[in-house]
Simulated scan of single mutants.
Amino acid sequence: MSLKPKSLLKFFIFPLQILTLLLVSCSFDYGNNQLASKDQPDIVMQNVEYVRVRGGDPVVRFHAEDAERFEERQIMNLRNFSFEQFENHGDDIDAMGRAGQASVALDSGNINLGGGVIISVESEDITIETSGLDWQDKERRLLGTPSGDVNISRSDGTEFSGRGFSADARSRTWTFTSGVSGSYVEKEEKEAEEEGDNYP
């Protein structure tokens, strides 16, 4: 099953790209750190917040309860990670998401989200929920866990889920390979039902 929900991909992938740019561009001078174990973080931060501003207006905000950076392994681990994307000069939140944890590969820009992932885009009236997602930066692909269900819903009653989820940012398509079920409400069908409700 293949779909083309362009807007959610746009709203979700943009914060991931900003997160990758932020974490990859950070560098620190640790001095002589030869005795440090590669299993011990080189830097630990708590209540990390980052706001990206464009033209004086906030564009996206990230928050993590804890962040650990492993310089030798080129990994940044985040706990209780969340983001908000703004519109109308920062007055409104249009997209938001959260994950129990996130792991960012600083050399490749790949991101693993786990511990429960929820992403919502208000302007598109769409929500995605799943146990985990992988962002492959070079391929510009978003993948669900192999055995994990991905659930997508809208307030109009559209709701479906499946396994083997993947999304291609270049073609802006979603694909499920198995276990797809649910229902899709066409806009015209919904409007006809609402008009019918006005008659006795």
Rank of each mutant, 00 (worst) to 15 (best):
R172I: 11
D156I: 08
G144W: 01
K6R: 11
S171E: 15
L143H: 04
D66C: 06
L78A: 02
F81I: 03
W174G: 03
T158Y: 05
D168L: 10
I128D: 01
I13M: 11
S108A: 11
E124P: 00
G116F: 07
Y199V: 13
R141H: 06
F12E: 04
A169N: 05
T173E: 14
F70Q: 05
Q101E: 12
Y184Q: 06
G144H: 00
V121Q: 06
A67N: 03
A105Q: 15
V121D: 04
D39F: 08
F86N: 03
D29R: 06
R154S: 13
I75T: 12
T127S: 13
M76E: 05
R154Q: 15
N33S: 11
E188R: 11
K6V: 15
R163A: 09
Y30P: 02
E68N: 14
N32A: 11
T158M: 03
V121L: 05
F12S: 05
C26I: 14
A64D: 02
I128R: 00
R73V: 04
G144E: 02
L23S: 01
R79L: 08
L19K: 02
Q74W: 07
M45I: 15
F81K: 01
A64P: 03
H63D: 11
I152H: 01
M76R: 07
R69W: 03
L113K: 00
D168H: 06
G55W: 05
Y30C: 04
P15S: 05
G164T: 04
G55N: 14
Y50D: 09
L143I: 09
Y199K: 09
G148S: 08
I128N: 01
S181C: 10
P200Q: 07
Q74M: 14
P5L: 04
E65I: 06
E71D: 11
F83E: 01
K10A: 11
E194V: 05
D39H: 12
G109D: 04
E122C: 04
P5A: 11
G31V: 06
Q74E: 12
P41V: 04
F160M: 01
W135F: 05
K6M: 13
R61D: 05
V48Y: 07
E191R: 10
N33Y: 10
G55F: 06
R54F: 08
E68F: 15
L3F: 14
E159Y: 12
F86H: 01
L35P: 03
G162Y: 03
G179T: 13
N198F: 11
Q136S: 09
A169H: 03
D197T: 07
L113M: 08
L106N: 04
S181E: 14
V104G: 00
